[in-house]
Design a protein around this nucleic acid. Structure first.
Lengths: 194, 194
DNA sequence: GACATAACATACTAATTGGTATGTTGGCAA
DNA sequence: TTGCCAACATACCAATTAGTATGTTATGTC
């Protein structure tokens, strides 16, 4: 990677951390260049506008990171109920970078930016749809393998699961990490009844 | 109500609408006084700071409004599973003031303000806890009346339900109102299996 | 080593922010 | 009718915002 690409990626990563903790609109360019030790000229050489940087951040940092944790395990796994639960537990408990106080960077951005900016909305909705598709595909694979006892609509289960994640990330900001534990127990019971 | 109290409440309600659509930090005092036709002097006569207004907004506008829709029906109802579903459907579909694009004002404020301001966090967490308690109480009443066939932990079910709401309000911002419909179907199936 | 351009650096700007200082006015008690 | 204070109104301010104009320096190519 060239030095310029290094600089660019460094700006994106540090910005990602700042925005994760403070929100997109509340993170100023001045603060970003202060923490990255990069000058304003350098910043605007790499990114046309703040939103250009924000969108690059989603596609180049958030997107790949989320794919590895939220989607890949579902594509590779064999027992959907267990796989979904493990993905969720991994997301909620094992990511030390993800703090209950600050929630999930993807959920935060959806919350803040979807109503403000249609380009953000579209970019972020892709992420949600991909997760949704991965969960539905996993459940359908499980159905074909006859490992479920009841009947259910995979799309509906996927929506309940995804919403649960987004919501517990939100509730966790107010009530703390104990929300995660309680939610995970409830999720396990739910998935086992499928 | 005195004229001064009228002015104060009018500021709170108009601010509530603005903040609901734009977020708390992105809604400026200047914009509030422009839409309320109230001068800056009047605003700062009624509220010490912006945060003072924000907190008043939560306790005096958001809180009472949410109580009527989220908690009261559960206290009065007889069939918890049905009651919980009805509250949710009512919240998601019947409130014309609540737009999928802008989500839920309470959830939005939790998302944005809990990490930034401990006073907001505490004030908002009360709202969540009250809803949680109401759901748990309703489920326990149902258990005593032996209307459930399975066994479950009410606290866990409450967390799954609350999280589901917060999450689908989030996802809905990205994917639109169809998320609500799918989620509600999944929720109904879930509640019927209790 | 000359030259071009990529990769930055510095200094500025106009607009917006929350908040304040200092007014003015309307209504009610004495 | 006078005096007083609640309830506003106006004019300002320092700090911060995203973005720009105009530099300088590093780096690869011939």
């Amino acid at each position: 990677m060239s030095k310029a690409a290094d600089t660019r990626m460094m700006i994106l990563q540090k910005s990602f951390e700042l925005i994760y903790r403070k929100g997109y609109q509340s993170t100023s360019i001045d603060e970003i260049i202060a923490t990255t030790q990069v000058t304003k000229g350098a910043f605007y050489y790499h990114f046309k506008t703040k939103d250009d940087m924000g969108l690059s951040l989603i596609t180049e940092v958030l997107y790949p990171g989320m794919y590895n944790v939220m989607i890949k395990p579902l594509e590779e796994g064999k027992d959907p109920a267990k796989d979904i639960y493990n993905v969720m537990e991994n997301l909620l408990n094992d990511f030390v970078f993800f703090n209950p106080d600050y929630g999930c960077p993807a959920i935060n951005l959806i919350e803040e930016m979807s109503p403000m900016n249609p380009v953000f909305k579209k970019t972020l909705s892709k992420l949600v749809k991909q997760w949704q598709n991965a969960i539905v595909a996993a459940l359908n694979k499980g159905k074909e393998a006859h490992i479920f006892t009841g009947t259910f609509v995979p799309e509906e289960v996927a929506m309940v699961v995804i919403s649960g994640y987004g919501g517990v990330r939100n509730i966790g900001k107010a009530l703390g990490k104990s929300s995660y534990t309680t939610y995970l127990k409830g999720l396990k019971t739910y998935l086992n009844k499928l």
